[in-house]
Design a protein around this nucleic acid. Structure first.
Lengths: 144, 144
DNA sequence: GTCGTTGCAAAAGTTTTGCACGTTA
DNA sequence: TAACGTGCAAAACTTTTGCAACGAC
């Protein structure tokens, strides 16, 4: 925890990023929360310590932290909900550029034993793979 | 296509669900679109054929279709973006009830060859597993 | 003092809800 | 005709943006 904060301040000094109370609190909240918080959750939790903070500071700071490689976004397809006429369990290839989704099956994965570390984690219902990359169309456009 | 539509009408008749022009168009759009469309995409595409249709009909119909098992939602953690202080590639266990996320690594999966079917699909950058279930806390509450 | 950051306010975009009217069976 | 479905309008909620004031270095 301490180490994380110190590393943050050191990185800022080195990278000419200004250290502000808001950034410190947001960073502290993310590394101490164990639930992969959302922007709104962070905002609500910080308000008691920094009463004047505004939502947009939280959003902008999180966006900056991502840019600087301090945090990452939990993989999520889109901000929009998308629908699938295939109601059977299956996996997805996701084009990072055009967001096209291609279904595929992977029986070898489906029948694979789950890591031993997950034994006491709870009840497992199903599993899903997402493979990210560029689809053929986008990959060929990229080369031009 | 035809078969899908006929099956839809048959299911409706059997289940005392009313067949309306809006429902038919929305269903047709989903099964013919190859891109796992969003509600907004479906709305925009149907408007030319059903000029009077409203957004909320599309949303409510999609919600009904899900309830009836005709379509599924593409797996997505939440409507909100969530952040992760762990910037290394890793996988997630997702509790379906409290939405808690637990990180885990799975080197056996990471080094597994990707299905041959995906060979010509494009450029692959990375892959991510999501395991869905109930965490220990929620599973024990469930039993009570 | 300079320039990056912040707060405020407003807006954009997705999704939900209440209510009166229309339509299906 | 009875019950369900739809359209309209408004609202809730997450996220983004423009601008003036503030604060870190």
């Amino acid at each position: 925890m301490e180490t994380g904060l110190e590393a943050f301040v050191a990185l800022c000094r080195k990278s000419e990023i200004k250290v502000t109370p808001q950034r410190l609190e947001i960073y502290k909240e993310i590394i101490s929360a164990d639930n992969h918080p959302s922007a709104e959750y962070i905002y609500q939790n910080i308000r008691s310590r920094l009463p004047g903070i505004s939502r947009d500071t939280v959003y902008r700071t999180l966006s900056s932290f991502q840019e600087w490689g301090l945090i990452s976004q939990v993989p999520n397809l889109d901000e929009m909900i998308r629908f699938d006429p295939n109601t059977q369990p299956h996996h997805h290839f996701v084009c990072e550029k055009c967001r096209k989704l291609i279904d595929f099956s992977w029986s070898e994965f489906d029948s694979m034993a789950i890591p031993a570390k997950l034994n006491g984690i709870g009840t497992i219902h199903n599993r899903h793979v997402e493979i990210y990359g560029l689809c053929q169309e986008c990959a060929s456009k990229e080369q031009q």
